[in-house]
Design a protein around this nucleic acid. Structure first.
Length: 289
DNA sequence: CGTATTGTTTTGCC
DNA sequence: GGGCAAAACAATAC
């Protein structure tokens, strides 16, 4: 589940290793990854171009080329690996490309970039420079950016009819959070994910704002969360899975108050929270099983 | 073999 | 036309 911290970790790793390289070839074994865009079209625009920079927008990875950008979304199980031809041990260690490697770039200097995705929820798209704005226009602000303000978060939550969890997962409100970090941020802020948006108060929204930024910053610092599939481009695990407070900890003790972490379905997602620390009302009950 | 897993798009309702 | 809920997608682990 690559969310903002995982994609940012991949971006940083790629940036130092593929910038300035020329794309010599592109292989696409699952054209469906392009969601309708033509393989020949993408090839003609990408091959022989140079990688100028590696950027990120929300959970999207952006390879900036001379003419246009290559946008990669990792879906749920997407992985990006970089291997050197010179160091064959890397390719052997990764056993790449394998049957789940659906997209590859051959780069100058004997490097290869592999996009592996077992569940095939991932996507690749080539955009002309002028198409970039429209492609991302529905996304809300970057949670770690200056545009993201606590008053905006408060108003956004307050005006929604859904529960808090659904609001925070909504990429139009704030872009980059997924299931893991929403649960973690709610716990850090001591707010229930089941809280109806319209019932949030300013104090809770400010707390959430700080929690979202702090959780994401810390997760970036620890190079992401490796619960199952996530690996960085060198096949290393992240470190944040050891620091999770609620996600994946159902039935275990809350590290803040000692009560048992609950798990239920909220906004159609597996959701973890401490019903004591994250009580909606003092003395009240959670609405969800 | 049924269930659970989740990010985004699509569909359909209000 | 927008907000919202639910389905669809897809493969693997258990």
């Amino acid at each position: 589940m690559p969310e903002l911290p995982e994609v940012e970790t991949i971006r940083k790793s790629l940036s130092g290793r593929i910038c300035g390289r020329k794309i010599l070839n592109l292989k696409l074994t699952k054209p469906k990854l392009l969601r309708g865009q033509k393989v020949v079209e993408v090839k003609s625009r990408v091959i022989n171009s140079k990688i100028l920079a590696v950027d990120r927008r929300a959970k999207y990875l952006i390879l900036r080329l001379n003419k246009g950008i290559l946008v990669l979304h990792l879906g749920m199980t997407g992985q990006i690996f970089v291997a050197s031809e010179k160091k064959m041990e890397n390719r052997n260690a990764f056993k790449l490309p394998d049957k789940h490697t659906h997209f590859q770039l051959e780069l100058s200097g004997g490097k290869f970039l592999y996009f592996r995705d077992t569940r095939q929820f991932g996507r690749v798209r080539f955009l002309e420079n002028h198409e970039e704005h429209d492609y991302f226009k529905k996304l809300g602000p970057e949670p770690l950016g200056k545009q993201f303000k606590s008053d905006y978060l408060y108003q956004s939550i307050k005006k929604r009819k859904t529960v808090l969890k659904a609001v925070l997962l909504n990429q139009k409100v704030v872009a980059g959070l997924g299931n893991i970090y929403v649960d973690e941020a709610c716990h850090a802020a001591k707010v229930s994910p089941c809280l109806p948006g319209k019932r949030i108060n300013l104090r809770q929204a400010r707390s959430l704002y700080r929690a979202i930024r702090n959780v994401l910053q810390t997760a970036v610092k620890y190079r992401g969360t490796s619960i199952s599939d996530y690996r960085d481009p060198d096949n290393n695990q992240g470190g944040y899975q050891h620091r999770l407070r609620v996600y994946g900890r159902a039935g275990q003790k809350c590290k803040r108050c000692g009560s048992i972490i609950k798990k239920g379905v909220v906004a159609q997602r597996g959701t973890h929270w401490c019903a004591v620390c994250q009580k909606q009302i003092i003395g009240g009950n959670d609405e969800i099983k």
